[in-house]
């Protein structure tokens, strides 16, 4: 039942080692993309001749982007959000889906170093960009100072909002908005936590900020 086009992009993969370009995925996808060229041009996708293409299979678009330092060349359904790309297709499930409508912050990732909501952006719009998800926040075995601080200050309970809180917390400091508890609260308000870990999160951010560690 499943058509060939779809297997590659939806096939489940857990990302163990993502420090190398994943050739297996790339090759499989290249095969599946017969007929699509990889050359960049002003109109990324050729104009359809008619809407018959639309009525059939969802069109697929080439996409190359860097995720957690790994360059990836993919072929995606244009309807796929950045969030669904990382969670459903790349197995990077650390980024969470809480609402899918930009109303909770659980899906926060960094795009070119800026925090954004991955549920409100199509993956195809990320052409050439550098994405950092929670899996890429720390390098290697040691935790990012913000991750350490969240553990120390118990900045979570169920942990579901946590990746989003962490990505946002790092940005909050980078953006220069972590100078007081009140400022942190305001600039972290885009990240809901139903368990109510807020006071501990604020403490964690303030601790990292005042420690002067680079984030």
């Amino acid at each position: 039942m499943k058509d060939k086009n779809e297997i590659d992009a939806t096939g489940p993969r857990r990302d163990g080692d993502h420090h190398q370009e994943d050739r297996r995925l790339f090759l499989k996808q290249s095969l599946a993309m017969t007929g699509l060229t990889l050359t960049p041009f002003s109109f990324f996708n050729a104009e359809p001749d008619s809407y018959s293409v639309l009525a059939g299979n969802a069109d697929r678009v080439d996409l190359s982007l860097t995720i957690n330092g790994v360059k990836r060349r993919l072929s995606v359904d244009p309807r796929t959000t950045l969030l669904d790309l990382v969670r459903e297709q790349l197995g990077l499930t650390g980024t969470k889906k809480g609402c899918d409508l930009g109303q909770c912050g659980a899906c926060t990732v960094h795009v070119d170093g800026q925090r954004v909501l991955s549920c409100l952006s199509f993956a195809v719009m990320q052409q050439g960009r550098k994405i950092t998800t929670i899996e890429g926040l720390s390098n290697g075995a040691s935790l990012h100072p913000m991750q350490e601080a969240f553990i120390k200050h118990d900045g979570f309970q169920c942990g579901y909002c946590t990746p989003g809180q962490l990505m946002s917390a790092v940005s909050c400091i980078r953006e220069g908005h972590a100078n007081s508890e009140a400022e942190i609260r305001e600039y972290m308000s885009g990240n809901l936590c139903r368990c109510g870990a807020y006071p501990n999160i604020v403490k964690a951010i303030l601790a990292v900020k005042t420690s002067g560690q680079s984030v």
Binding site: S42, F43, N45, P48, D59, V61
Partner: peptide, 19 residues
């Protein structure tokens, strides 16, 4: 969500023409 075609023009003119 209905399937759609995705375009990314780089000039204002192309963008307006596309619509």
């Amino acid at each position: 969500m209905k399937p759609f075609h995705y375009l990314r023009p780089t000039t204002v003119k192309d963008a307006i023409n596309a619509l």
